[in-house]
Simulated scan of single mutants.
Amino acid sequence: MSGIDPEALADAVYGIFEIYLNRELRRRGPYLFELVEQGIDFKEKLREIFSRFREDYPELADALLKRFGSIDAIYAPLREGEGVSPSKTTRTYWIVQDAPGPHERGVDDERAGKWLIFVPAGEADEAWRKVRNETVEGRLGISAKVSTARPDPDSRDERTVIYVYTKDWADEADVMRVRERLRKLGFKERIGYKRNIETFRGEYSEEGRKVTYYSA
């Protein structure tokens, strides 16, 4: 791993570990957000999962410990909302929540698309909680994600953005079903839906030019 920026490596490794952690916690029981929001101590579970991570990816685990020093240093921010609340997450650019069950198409499929919800940073935690919970219950799309408090040099907006993915942009009935559900959650202002095709092409809305496929 020589020649790689240590900070960039640590960030990448942490992102991998957080995905691993969420997957393993879910296999064992509650989601990370449930443990945090219910005030349940999960330090021992974290230690067990990290030990398994170290067995599977020894170099990555060593890089993680080199950056943070100890399991306790990883646990403390998680306990306070890192990876759960957008306002308290500074180690990753996004928090992701997938809907339960297998899906024919993932969020990276070109047939997928997403509703874009922009909210002031001060309203992000509550807005995300609503979307996340509905996603977990299977009442929205196949996945959702929210930008975090970590400054993103590629961001085009100072507001927090929430993506709500559907599996097929051509399935207008399903796309609008999700939009109606979002409206019932309180997101009543007009929002846009963008196909992954435009995202993959690097196409973004500019003054006088929109790339949203639906608007409702």
Rank of each mutant, 00 (worst) to 15 (best):
Y75A: 05
L25T: 06
F33D: 02
L78S: 01
P86A: 04
F33L: 02
R54P: 01
K66C: 04
I95S: 00
G81N: 05
E44V: 14
D72L: 11
L65V: 07
W94D: 04
L35R: 13
E48S: 14
D62M: 08
K43D: 04
D62K: 15
I19E: 12
E34S: 11
S70P: 12
Y31I: 02
R54A: 15
I19Y: 07
L25G: 02
S70C: 13
F42A: 01
Y93T: 10
R26D: 08
L35F: 06
E37N: 13
P77I: 08
A61T: 06
F42P: 00
E24P: 00
D98A: 12
Y75I: 06
A76L: 14
E44Q: 15
Y31E: 12
D98T: 03
R47L: 09
L25A: 08
Y93S: 06
I49N: 00
N22L: 05
G29S: 11
R27Y: 10
R23V: 10
R67N: 11
G101D: 11
G15S: 10
R79A: 10
K66M: 06
R91K: 15
D62F: 03
F50L: 13
I16P: 00
G69R: 09
Y93D: 08
Q38I: 01
F33N: 01
R52Y: 10
G83V: 03
S87N: 05
K45H: 07
N22M: 13
E80Y: 03
F50R: 00
E18R: 13
L21M: 11
R27T: 09
I16V: 10
E80I: 02
G39H: 08
F50Y: 11
I19T: 12
D72C: 02
R79Y: 07
R28E: 14
V84C: 02
F53V: 11
A73D: 11
D72N: 11
T89F: 01
R52P: 01
G39I: 12
F53P: 00
R67A: 15
Y20I: 05
